[in-house]
Design a protein around this nucleic acid. Structure first.
Lengths: 143, 143
DNA sequence: CGGAAGTCGATAGACGGCTAATGTCTTCAG
DNA sequence: CTGAAGACATTAGCCGTCTATCGACTTCCG
């Protein structure tokens, strides 16, 4: 069992659980904060645009949007000029979550990296970026 | 958007996709290799034991085991002495995957970390371990 | 202008993951 | 020895994610 893959996997699972717990405090499910973030940055985006921004497939965004619309976080509306497009718009409830959710996220980042020196943190980010680059290249090559 | 969480999330997603592609070559779905690994190490374990080893809940193992039994990778059998227990046993097909799957896994690890010097790799592992430790502590404290 | 090709979102269905509820078998205390 | 408590696996149902398919709307070319 390769050690990097194993350790990364376990860390990933733990971070996921911690992020989930944090978001749950604001009534969100894991991942919904990312969709909201895309709309906080620019409201009225289409599912396809958001999917590309989050590096996720369109059906994933569609499903999440359906649940989040039910939860009153956003609304769906077809684009006036191009009826193929759908645009997602934040509700007041969706907008109101921005500050608390972003703060929660920053707090989590701080806490999990608190044990690293600034230099270690910098090296971690750079090494992780390299792994990400290599992995993306690997995926691209085996089309 | 905190940079470590963001980068880690993206790397995680890329690694997941790459691992999935690798396992698919052997007819496995992502994660099934981990369940198999638990049985390769010691055959005849129970769902609960495996769940603990993989740091996953029991229902997750039960579902995976059901699919993998259908796929002919393992069989279910109740323990003779304690009828509450179920033991999972590898089939020949499940055993035969060990070498190729472990090789695939090692190859992936090598390729994604190929761009790092031994020192960088060592520091990455140590930093990741620290993040994992801090995250686990965070989760434990908010019971 | 009208049909073919292209662009989107929505749906279907599979998988891994979780929590909560169910059911069955052991164990243990009275 | 019998009933309550405990230990397991399983089922149900939700969420995020993917691929494959469908359906509706635009666009563009002959």
């Amino acid at each position: 069992m390769p050690e990097f893959l194993d350790l990364h996997g376990r860390t990933s699972k733990a971070l996921r659980a911690a992020a989930d717990a944090g978001m749950r405090r604001h009534g969100l499910h894991l991942g919904q904060n990312l969709l909201l973030a895309a709309l906080w940055e620019r409201d009225g985006r289409t599912p396809g645009e958001i999917a590309a921004a989050l590096d996720v497939t369109t059906p994933t965004v569609v499903k999440m949007a359906t649940r989040m619309a039910t939860a009153g976080l956003l609304t769906r509306a077809r684009d006036e000029r191009d009826q193929r497009l759908v645009r997602l718009w934040l509700t007041d409830a969706g907008r109101a979550l921005r500050e608390p959710v972003e703060a929660e996220r920053r707090l989590l980042e701080e806490r999990v990296t608190a044990g690293l020196t600034p230099d270690e943190r910098r090296r971690l980010l750079s090494a992780l970026a390299e792994v990400h680059r290599a992995t993306a290249a690997l995926l691209a090559e085996q089309v």
